[in-house]
Nucleic acid binder design. Structure first.
Lengths: 203, 203, 203, 203
DNA sequence: CATGAATGAGGCTTCATTCAT
DNA sequence: CATGAATGAAGCCTCATTCAT
């Protein structure tokens, strides 16, 4: 009755859905996936509860849509890097990191982030979505590294992602940490990961 | 170790509390802080709901106790490092990482981990607990680095913590990643963070 | 008549609310404000518990609505007196007292009455409602006395109200008291309060 | 197992009971008969819950004891009047009213008062206690009036009791009423009830 | 005489979801 | 396309009472 995938491709419908996703995201950020109620979300959309169910047949589906939207946004961050000439990758990536961290009020989007990770541990559908998205991003990033002539791209990718996955948790556990100081530490690491042989000796 | 108030120090009471915390942790891991019900927790403890409230006056308080227990466990991991002779720190730390990752079924304890981080975003008490604990661990770790004669201990600490905070998220998003391969990547990073100047040029 | 907030003025909604108030009143009379359960009230309304909360957001609010309804009914008793020509006030008031006491099964509505007074001692909102209503009734009654040319209207009002406030308690503590006998005693008192100088010497 | 009447007449036991009644009264005044919990009462007594049940086999029984204690106190107020010479009754009663109202912080003891009346409506045992006590007091008061040579003692008694039963409700609904002004009104009324023919024409 | 651990039914309230209009 | 009335299970928590120690 309500296909997650084969939704009608009416433009109005899609626009409405996007608006709802945006509102729901706000509620989820404020109260968590389990703390936010469907009626509160409906109210935030200026919409009746019943009508909400015309667009999303269950809360589960709405959560998935919100998660997917966030994953898409995360993937978009690679677009810029892909448009760079390969030889400038290392330097520009580091600069980009600096820009994001210094000129962004909420650089890590921690709220939805942890909500998603927590949910993924109990909800296989969400877990799969994260994993599929991660594979896409890894592949794209690996391709970037390869085009830049960097060796061992998988390992470097994994390393970089581990790093950036850790930053949101650090922001929560150590919020008074100065951004500038963090940037000073991160930039050389990024450059190293992008450009320099990081394993001295192989077994 | 962490009394919310001046709890009576009856030994039986404390033992019971610890048992409840253990059971509750299991339920929270299975269903999340908000998904696990007090009655299910009581059942898991072999106890009536009402009686649960003789030990924890609210779900909130029980969650805090579980969180504190996990934080204490995390802090304990530093104990071993502190018992090492300073000059062996770098090498032993790397070896310890390897041991943990390779010989442990659930090395990251991701479940409670993310549940805590997600909760910390809406629950100031939990957030504070994480931050207080983080400060403690940072200070202890810095002291280790200083005793080992390493410069810029704060930055190195932050870097290392970012790294290890990222691993759980990586495990969720990229579960098929081979542990051995990950270890191969991590060990040199750890060594570098422990021992080597990581900033080539200072401004 | 007494909106807690700016309730929507949907007629259906208001009718339903009134029905619920009536049913709740019945339950409160039978079991008291604290003895009556929301689920029993819902059942008495032929309604699910959850739905009750679409009309009253808490038991507290429902209690307030029931109290206000009773207070409004009490105030209505003045309507008739106000429609009388001033010179007939004394005689008609006494006759009215007789009518109420003799031709009414439950002339004092003691049940809700004492429930309200008991509740007012712990619930400031209820206390305030009683006091506001009392002021309104006193003012209206004073105006009546003034229009009838009676002196010292405030004191007479207070006296009369003390009297009639005492009757419900008497009915409870002395239920076998004959009504007719009581009326014989009351009528001259009422007449005296309405018409005759009751203080022999004024300062 | 636990006789309400034939309790052991051990002096210690009785003293303890009296202490508990005093503490329970405090709790009942603060939270009402239904709002006060047995464990809170036990705590107020510095006693364990279980032990409380050695003195009162149920909450119901405790409530009854508290009610009886209050009724006994009310009856005691007649003692003084009974010790007066009959001819001074009218004047002294009025003066006594004045003394009570002007030199007493809580002259009406409204809290327990209304709690009792509300409870009496649903609890036949309590109702009976009030009624038995009321009969005793009426009889004693009638005897006083008769000894003072006053006619129609029953009616006068009922009238006076109605008056004084109304004052607590007035105190709740019109708390800002000045005491002095009230006394000025009451004193002549009391005198009239005690001493003067109040019905102009008898049938 | 005294404790407090233990029970489990019942309290108020919220929730995702459905359906008649 | 849109509403909001309606459901009832489940949520957290409190209570009077009992019983082993």
């Amino acid at each position: 009755m309500a296909d997650t995938a084969t939704q009608k491709i009416s433009p109005k419908h899609e626009i409405r859905r996007a608006q709802i996703i945006a509102c729901a995201e706000g509620e989820f950020e404020k109260h968590g996936f389990h703390g936010a109620g469907m009626s509160a979300i409906a109210k935030a959309c200026g919409m009746s509860v019943g009508h909400l169910y015309h667009y999303f047949s269950s809360k589960e589906e709405l959560i998935q849509a919100v998660v997917q939207a966030e994953l898409d946004r995360q993937a978009c961050r690679l677009d810029e890097l892909e448009s760079l000439p390969p030889e400038m990758l290392a330097s520009d990536a580091a600069r980009k990191v600096e820009t994001i961290l210094m000129h962004n009020d909420n650089p890590y989007r921690t709220v939805l982030n942890f909500e998603m990770l927590a949910e993924a541990q109990r909800n296989p559908k969400i877990a799969q979505m994260l994993q599929v998205n991660d594979k896409l991003m890894r592949d794209r990033f690996c391709a970037l590294l390869i085009s830049a002539g960097v060796d061992e791209p998988e390992d470097r990718t994994e390393l970089l992602l581990a790093f950036f996955s850790g930053l949101p948790a650090r922001a929560l556990r150590h919020p008074e940490q100065e951004r500038q100081s963090l940037v000073d530490v991160l930039v050389p690491v990024v450059e190293k990961i992008f450009g320099e042989p990081f394993r001295k000796t192989e077994t």
